[in-house]
């Protein structure tokens, strides 16, 4: 009888040998091959406990700091869209958000005169604070939409975490939509209206959705390029928030 090759024995250790049952039958019958197998096994078992050192504390931070300056900018498409000549609707949308921000700022800071007296004007920019909130709202909405677009469609889908997020977003969405309407921008109001309907659909649906339900929600997201619009406006709002304002009235100046 032919003995097993070294390759068969090694691969058998990992369960990767061809004709595994024949290999096993041979090992049961042949002491010599069994001995060889045992040697391989004992050697390989010794290699098991090799340990990896934990990277030092702050390793993630260090990796990021070293990496950060080497990352080229992404999203040049968006930059081309906004500069030098932004498309009309997007510009109008941003204007409306800024107006909405100013409007909300008025509601959230009922005594602006007192505040200015207490703090240097460069630090008091309620419009900016609300702008951060609007940007955050669109960003979170975008993430939720992307997540839904990428959810696994096999079998029943647990939607409870998406629903909780949609419910929260729906509340603030309402506020921003009302203010953009009052600010007189039908386009951004329409965007938030559209977003609101999709959020409502997600928030009020069953916790476990079928692939068909999911497809319906996706269709609603895809219709009229909702995700793209949310992305574009959200990104522009965020880039304005990040840009340092020369003075506390920077937003107003642009309006």
């Amino acid at each position: 009888m032919n003995h097993l090759s070294e390759e068969q024995i090694v691969l058998h250790y990992y369960g990767d040998a061809e004709e595994a049952t024949e290999v096993e039958r041979h090992l049961a019958a042949c002491a010599e091959c069994r001995a060889e197998f045992a040697r391989v096994q004992s050697m390989l078992r010794q290699i098991e406990p090799l340990e990896v050192p934990e990277p030092a504390a702050g390793f993630e931070e260090k990796t990021w700091l070293n990496l950060h300056d080497r990352l080229p900018e992404k999203g040049s498409l968006l930059r081309r869209l906004f500069r030098p000549s932004p498309p009309k609707w997007a510009f109008a949308g941003v204007m409306a958000l800024l107006l909405a921000a100013a409007f909300l700022a008025g509601r959230f800071w009922p005594r602006p005169g007192q505040q200015v007296a207490q703090q240097p004007p460069s630090q008091v920019n309620p419009q900016r604070v609300v702008l951060v909130a609007v940007g955050d709202h669109l960003e979170r909405s975008q993430m939720l939409l992307v997540e839904i677009m990428n959810a696994d469609t096999k079998g029943p889908i647990n939607f409870s975490s998406e629903q909780a997020e949609a419910r929260e977003l729906l509340d603030s969405n309402h506020l921003y939509r009302v203010s953009s309407q009052q600010a007189g921008d039908p386009q951004v109001a329409r965007l938030l209206d559209q977003l609101g309907r999709v959020l409502a659909e997600i928030a009020n649906g069953p916790a476990e959705v079928s692939p068909e339900d999911l497809e319906q929600v996706r269709h609603a997201i895809q219709s009229e390029g909702l995700l793209f619009k949310v992305r574009v406006v959200g990104s522009e709002v965020n880039s304005r928030v990040r840009r340092p304002e020369p003075s506390g009235s920077g937003v107003n100046q642009r309006l």
Binding site: L71, E73, K74, G75, L78, R79, E139, Q142, M143, L144, V146, E147, N150, R231, G234, S235, N238, S239
Partner: peptide, 15 residues
């Protein structure tokens, strides 16, 4: 937030 959502965010220009 899922990794895919973060990737989308980076691709949208948020380095």
């Amino acid at each position: 937030v899922t990794d895919a959502a973060v990737v989308a965010q980076v691709l949208a220009g948020d380095r």
